[in-house]
């Protein structure tokens, strides 16, 4: 029984820390349940408490180390440099799409759909992964599109790092595409704050999710098609 209590307390504390940027209430409830479980252990068998506390501390320490030293670097590892020019003779406009593909296909599908939509509207599109080789001189582009997975309630670090490398966006029109497992709300705030701080002209932030249908937003559940249609609409309204 105390093994189960240790697992629950450890899990509760870990989730409490993880939930903090997402929901303070959820974080509080999670930590509260863990504390209640500890109180129950102390009430049932006080001598077991040091063991439960020690095991919990070890678990939480290992979880924190694994999360920060393995998982975060793995998910935020910069993709190999890849710069692709599409529709080089496009005349309607020029767009630079910089994205971090992440560890699922969703973000790559979304930005490729967006690129296809712009190309369909006769835009010249440069598609680049977010790393040191991605173009930082935006003078030749009318639109900057940034695409990032949401990891622990924030946009992927390579995209944030890229935007900081660019620095002042000088009022350049910017569109962001955020992908997430089921929630991108907190990452939206981080992205909007960053783009605003860098003096970008944020036109819109679009969302695609892995376990959450998107058809209510875009009329289709296919992220590639949804972003393609979105880009076509954006291009049609451009300059109006």
């Amino acid at each position: 029984m105390f093994i189960l209590a240790t697992i629950l307390v450890s899990f509760g504390f870990s989730l409490g820390v993880l939930a903090w940027p997402y929901s303070r209430a959820l974080s509080g409830v999670s930590v509260g349940i863990s504390l209640a479980m500890l109180a129950w252990v102390a009430w049932r068998q006080r001598t077991a408490l040091p063991g439960v506390l020690g095991s919990t501390a070890v678990f939480c320490l290992l979880a924190a180390l694994g999360w920060n030293l393995l998982l975060m670097p793995w998910a935020n590892h910069e993709a190999p440099s890849q710069i692709e020019l599409r529709n080089a003779n496009g005349t309607a406009g020029a767009a630079l799409i910089v994205y971090h593909p992440g560890r699922s296909e969703l973000q790559t599908e979304a930005v490729n759909g967006f690129a296809e939509g712009l190309v369909a509207a006769d835009w010249r599109v440069t598609l680049a992964t977010a790393n040191a080789a991605a173009p930082t001189d935006l003078a030749a582009y009318d639109l900057l599109v940034v695409g990032a997975q949401s990891y622990t309630w924030a946009p992927a670090r390579p995209v944030q790092a890229y935007l900081r490398r660019v620095g002042n966006l000088g009022g350049k029109p910017v569109v962001a595409i955020l992908s997430g497992l089921g929630e991108t709300g907190p990452a939206t705030t981080v992205m909007a704050d960053l783009l605003t701080a860098l003096n970008g002209n944020l036109l819109n932030i679009y969302h695609v999710w892995q376990i959450r249908p998107i058809d209510e937003l875009y009329g289709t559940d296919d992220p590639r098609l949804a972003m393609r249609q979105t880009a076509v609409s954006l291009a049609a309204a451009w300059g109006k």
């Binding site: 899990f11 959820l26 560890r103 990891y151 622990t152």
Partner: peptide
């Protein structure tokens, strides 16, 4: 527990972990 955690916190990194 994993099912409940992902319902409460639908995050990629948590799902990978």
């Amino acid at each position: 527990a994993a099912l409940g955690a992902l319902l409460l916190l639908p995050d990629y990194l948590l799902s990978y972990a």
